[in-house]
Design a protein around this nucleic acid. Structure first.
Length: 922
RNA sequence: GCCGAAGUGGCGGAAUUGGCAGACGCGCGGGAUUCAAAAUCCCGUCCUGGCAACAGGGUGAGGGUUCGACUCCCUCCUUCGGCACCA
């Protein structure tokens, strides 16, 4: 049976052909064609190999790449390996196998798997982040960070030698000043230290305060770390999101991660001390409601101002708080803890003395590490105040709708120095007095009535709506006090500011504070500087030397790459020093002047290599530069990477870090766009056949090698695209693979004679009939449109419909199947090439023009319209495509079924939607 | 708790963005072919009633807007993903 669809042979044949002919080699700087850069998020080469989730994104990007080539674009479609990573290091610790070796083996296997799917990558541009020829430039970019500072006024990075240095600094001060402005700097920051394992753990390796492996306790321990000043770019990272075409949800995630809040810094004087405490608040309009102050336990001023008799309690609380990991803190979020420190702050707006507490719900790392607490209008402060019986003063009156939604107070009371004591028992008395006032003729108010009061007083003022309103006005403070209201509204209890809206108040109080020298407008971000060092072996070494005299020196560019030393033992040494500290010969360096220095023994995190790989693809073999500026200009053009496809798990960190590095490179003139990735698409996760996440322990992992062996790469590609929308989470179904495989079989049999393997006799050089021609044009249009809008599943469906149509014909016009083969090619390239060859074309179809369609032939000649009577379909009519509204009306009314449904009544209105339906309203 | 996405046949999913709900595929039922099977082809397949023509119901639940709602608005429920005291 010569003519069977032998996908195995065909796929190998064409993969070899593409590889040998370098069919997909991208031409640098070819100005004769528009460029198109399609990028996949490169994978970590794991020992598990490829899983079926990988080819989903890769197939989608490959379809676009192949489609764009046929549309005449010069396409850059590269691939590579994010090859540094923990698993290889863990394997090294367990077995002694060098991570380099493991990594090479895994890359070889995954490269084989990736190639077996027939993706049109330009393999000549393959990169691996672990290759010294690659990480030389990762280190080079680090040096750019180290040797740059951020000019606040111009909002951009500049070379450090342009940093203006204040007059009169000593040599040491000057050096410190410079170091304090570098975008890469060293700092003592707390990390997850596991004494038992003698190592530092990543956050995800710590579960409930214990190490993931071995369940040993983990503590926060300050250690010297490299940090990157990403926070300097916070504003630009937010602003430039407007320039990119990304899913809304990803933009939102990034926005929230940066976490900009606008508010004011306010200085509170201390009773009995010269110092002031600065707080940051987004609600300066609630200053009059600040009834106490909270400082983070770690706040440096605490020691100084704590009262003698409180010191012991304060110390105790601090040690407790220090022992909590970040996780513990959040676990205990519900139950607030704290300790008064016996000092008073003075509220600058009204001179009230308010107590100062410490509590771990205030973070030292955000804002100023101290807050003014406004329990009436902040959930956390409210919780704290009710627990510790602190006063609550409402200073914002919610609008009517919000007030109505507030539950009625039950038994809340407090004994604070400010504000009145309120309890449910007193309500009747208050209500009585209100009613008296109302009867005395006070003006009406538009306030809601607390429901619980209604029963008691409604009787008295049954027919007096004015009274009801008045009562509710008087009760509002009770309602507000009993419940925290974080919303906006109008100022009350706020002196001369009463009556202002929240927005107006914020404006005015900021000016007022500034005038009095008590505060100013201020902006804060959640974003923190990037902890950029790891105590690991398998990562990029820092190109940094620590001289014995304390100087920190960068290697010169000529000394790059700084390669990893060969070591015997991949474990960290017990002190917490990274494994590189074991490599004594590597670590110790004699400088040109004979003095000694030690190399940095931390390594860079996995993010480093993936931050800029899209640039290395532009010029992967360049050993003089990270990339050639001309090539960068050509491929990155005005918009950067045209299409970037990858998993949503990188929505925040990878994309944010990449954007940060790109902006630095932009500031220094190495790249020509503000943003690296113009359009971003996330592929959704593929679940196992049981609808669960694929995992070895569940035994529901689908092996791509097996799918390809059983059904072929084309079927695999087609199925992954046919499953549903690219970004949806969807379960695998092996019978679905067979379904698309049958489609390819059907197409094959349509064109190839099963005995001879030649073109089937039914395929003839002949004119297509009208219906076939119309469907062909519709299919070509649909497939093209769907590729452009990433609707691959419906594109495949359209091709299936067309193939089903063709199989019913006795004679199949050759020109028609040729176009079909061309539109199928991006999806199932192997079978398409084979059929194209059988249709007697000597050249690969990879650069064949995408078929044109004729808009006139896409349109139907006759259209079936649904006829509704009062919105219910009663009949269908067929009209000519160009029929007028009047003609359609007449034809609709002449239907017998319609007449019955109308029951003899006259049409009140007839709605005609051309090419859709007619609705007769009676 | 907050934020984001999504709920459509037995299953994956379509629906020109307010206009014939269920395209296409899977599965299932029936038939053809075959000594038989696989493969292939044809017919059927949202639910209820009916031999049928047909009638009624139907897109997580309830309400609303509209001649007309899977699509827009309000309330609620469920699932998935992210964040976690950020003042």
């Amino acid at each position: 049976m010569k003519g069977h669809y032998r996908f195995g042979e065909i796929e190998k044949k064409w993969q070899r052909f593409w590889e040998e002919s370098k069919t997909f080699k991208a031409q640098d700087c070819d100005d004769s064609r528009p460029k198109y850069y399609v990028l996949d998020m490169f994978p970590y080469p794991s020992g598990q190999g490829l899983h079926v989730g990988h080819p989903e994104g890769y197939t989608a990007s490959d379809i676009v790449a192949r489609y764009r080539r046929m549309k005449g674009f010069n396409v850059l479609h590269p691939f590579g390996w994010d090859a540094f990573g923990l698993p290889a290091e863990q394997y090294a610790i367990q077995t002694g196998t060098a991570p380099e070796e493991t990594t090479q083996r895994n890359i070889a296997n995954m490269r084989r798997q990736t190639k077996s799917l027939g993706f049109s990558y330009d393999w000549d541009r393959e990169v691996a982040t672990t290759d010294p020829k690659y990480f030389k430039w990762t280190q080079w970019i680090f040096l750019r960070l180290f040797n740059s500072y951020f000019d606040q006024a111009e909002q951009k990075a500049k070379p450090i030698d342009q940093l203006p240095i204040p007059e009169g600094l000593s040599g040491a001060e000057k050096k410190k000043y410079i170091d304090d402005h570098r975008l890469a700097y060293e700092a003592e920051v707390p990390v997850n230290w596991c004494p038992e394992l003698g190592t530092v753990l990543a956050n995800e390796e710590v579960i409930g305060g214990l190490s993931e492996r071995g369940n040993h306790p983990v503590v926060r321990k300050p250690m010297r770390q490299w940090m990157l000043r990403i926070t300097k770019y916070a504003e630009r990272l937010l602003d430039d999101l407007a320039e990119v075409d990304w899913p809304y949800s990803i933009k939102k995630l990034q926005t929230d991660w940066v976490g900009k809040s606008v508010g004011a810094d306010v200085d509170f004087a201390l009773d009995g001390f010269d110092e002031t405490i600065r707080v940051f608040t987004t609600r300066p309009d609630t200053l009059f409601g600040a009834t106490y102050m909270v400082m983070a336990p770690e706040h440096p001023l605490v020691d100084k101002i704590a009262a003698e008799d409180k010191k012991e309690a304060v110390d105790k609380y601090r040690t407790q708080a220090a022992r909590k990991s970040d996780l513990d803190r959040t676990d205990l979020a519900k139950d607030k803890t704290g300790e008064p420190i016996g000092a008073l702050a003075i509220n600058p707006v009204n001179g009230e003395k308010i107590p100062i507490w410490i509590s771990d719900y205030v973070l030292i790392s955000y804002g100023t590490g101290a807050i003014m607490a406004v329990p009436a209008h902040d959930e956390r402060d409210f919780e704290f105040a009710t627990k510790f019986n602190l006063p609550i003063i409402p200073v914002v009156e919610p609008d009517r709708q919000t007030a109505l939604a507030l539950p009625i107070p039950t038994d809340y009371s407090y004994d604070g120095p400010i504000g009145e004591r309120v309890s449910i028992e007193e309500w009747s008395a208050i209500a009585d007095s209100i009613i008296k006032e109302v009867k005395a003729g006070r003006a009406p108010f538009t306030r809601p009535v607390p429901q619980k009061l209604e029963g008691e007083v409604a009787r008295l003022v049954a027919d007096d709506s004015v009274a009801r309103e008045e009562i509710s006005m008087r009760m509002r403070d009770c309602a507000i006090i009993s419940q925290c209201n974080a919303g906006e509204g109008w100022a009350i209890n706020s002196g001369q500011f009463d009556g202002l809206s929240t927005a107006e108040f914020k404006e005015q109080i900021a000016d007022w504070l500034e005038q009095k020298g008590l505060g100013k407008k201020s902006v804060n971000y959640k974003l923190r500087d990037w902890l950029f060092s790891r105590q690991r072996y398998w990562g990029e070494p820092f190109p940094i030397l620590h001289a014995d005299d304390g100087r920190v020196m960068a290697l010169s560019e000529d000394d790059l790459p700084l390669e990893l030393p060969v070591v015997e033992d991949y474990r960290p040494i017990g002190t917490g020093e990274p494994p590189l500290a074991n490599a004594v010969d590597w670590v110790n360096v004699t400088l040109g002047d004979g003095s000694k220095a030690k190399r940095e023994t931390n390594t860079m995190p996995q993010w480093a290599g993936s931050c800029w790989y899209y640039l290395r693809y532009l010029d992967p073999d360049n050993d003089r530069q990270g990339w050639d500026p001309e090539k960068e200009k050509y491929w990155m053009g005005d918009v950067g990477v045209d299409l970037y496809i990858g998993g949503a798990e990188h929505a925040v960190l990878h994309l944010l870090y990449s954007r940060f590095w790109h902006k630095l490179l932009y500031d220094l003139g190495y790249v020509s766009t503000k943003e690296p990735f113009k359009k971003l698409i996330n592929q959704g996760m593929i679940l196992g056949e049981d609808g669960q996440k694929m995992s070895k322990s569940r035994g529901n992992v689908v092996n791509p090698d097996k799918v390809i062996a059983d059904h072929g790469a084309d079927s695999m590609r087609l199925y992954e695209m046919f499953m549903g929308p690219l970004d949806a989470v969807k379960p695998w179904n092996m019978q679905g693979v067979e379904g698309v495989h049958r489609f390819l079989q059907k197409l094959w049999r349509l064109i190839v004679d099963k005995d001879t393997g030649e073109i089937d006799n039914a395929v003839k050089e002949t004119e297509a009939d009208e219906a076939t021609l119309r469907l062909l044009n519709q299919t070509v249009k649909k497939v093209g449109d769907d590729i452009e809008s990433f609707g691959f599943n419906t594109a495949i469906s359209a091709m299936m419909i067309f193939v089903n149509h063709l199989t019913r014909l006795t004679v199949v016009p050759k020109a028609v199947v040729e176009k079909l083969v061309l539109v199928l090619a991006p999806f199932a390239p192997h079978i398409a090439e084979e059929l194209w060859e059988k249709l007697s074309h000597a050249e690969s179809l990879a650069y064949e023009s995408w078929p044109e369609y004729d808009e006139k032939l896409v349109k139907e000649k006759e259209i079936e319209l649904a006829v509704q009577v009062n919105g219910k379909i009663r009949d269908k009519i067929v009209v000519a495509a160009g029929a007028s509204e009047e003609q359609i009306k007449q034809q609709a009314l002449s239907s017998g079924k319609v007449a019955i449904a109308m029951r003899g009544e006259d049409p009140k209105k007839i709605i005609v939607i051309k090419s859709r339906l007619v609705n007769i309203v009676v």
